[in-house]
Design a protein around this nucleic acid. Structure first.
Lengths: 113, 113
DNA sequence: CAGTATCCGAAACGATACTG
DNA sequence: CAGTATCGTTTCGGATACTG
């Protein structure tokens, strides 16, 4: 049905969840450290951030680089594959720009559950 | 961050879940009845199908038309707004065709949790 | 036929606290 | 700083059974 997709989701990677896409966007302009990611994603907790971060790392969308020393310093950076996801993401945002407001109006009118 | 989006998801509508996008695809070639949807979506249960179906109806992506009579006959059909979602969906599928296999290989190598 | 009613389990999200 | 450990809540998906 969705050629090439795992059969249980339309999208191949975990970008439909609450945080993953935002994480990728935060890394768009360069590597960021764990705590640097927490700022734009506030009020995300460390535990919640860790989940999707491990997932994108496992999927080769982001690299994790730990530099030894005190204090510890860990940098997250997009891979080319991670960067390639911005294309579908941009199209989703374009749909939003075109239809989002209207959709939310209809949803509210129908009882925005 | 995602212009025009609800703040809790990158995508505006519920297409990141397991069934919604598949439902839209099933309606692509014309209206379908409840039971007709269950066939390509097997082994979905009626209760599970009802959830996303009510959501897309509430969001104006699909219309629900009940014809009186015995047996009951209910038809679901895409609206123009629902149809417009195929554009972003197609781009997601294209990403899959280009990167999906590689991604699943990496994921499996890293312990496909 | 087109659903609804119950009950269940898994996963995501979240608050709070603690550690190398 | 960069996490992990616990605990609790909510949501999704699913199995089974029942109804207008």
């Amino acid at each position: 049905m969705f050629a090439g997709c795992a059969d249980h989701t339309p999208l191949p990677v975990r970008v439909g969840d609450k945080w993953t896409a935002k994480i990728l966007v935060c890394l768009r302009d360069g590597p960021r450290r764990f705590s640097e990611l927490r700022v734009p994603l506030a009020p995300i907790t460390p535990k919640v951030l860790t989940g999707p971060l491990r997932a994108v790392e496992r999927d080769g969308l982001v690299t994790r680089t730990a530099r030894p020393g005190i204090p510890p310093r860990v940098e997250y950076a997009l891979t080319p594959r991670g960067r390639s996801l911005f294309a579908p993401l941009a199209v989703a945002c374009a749909w939003n720009a075109a239809h989002g407001a209207e959709l939310r109006a209809v949803r509210a009118a129908n009882g925005g559950r």
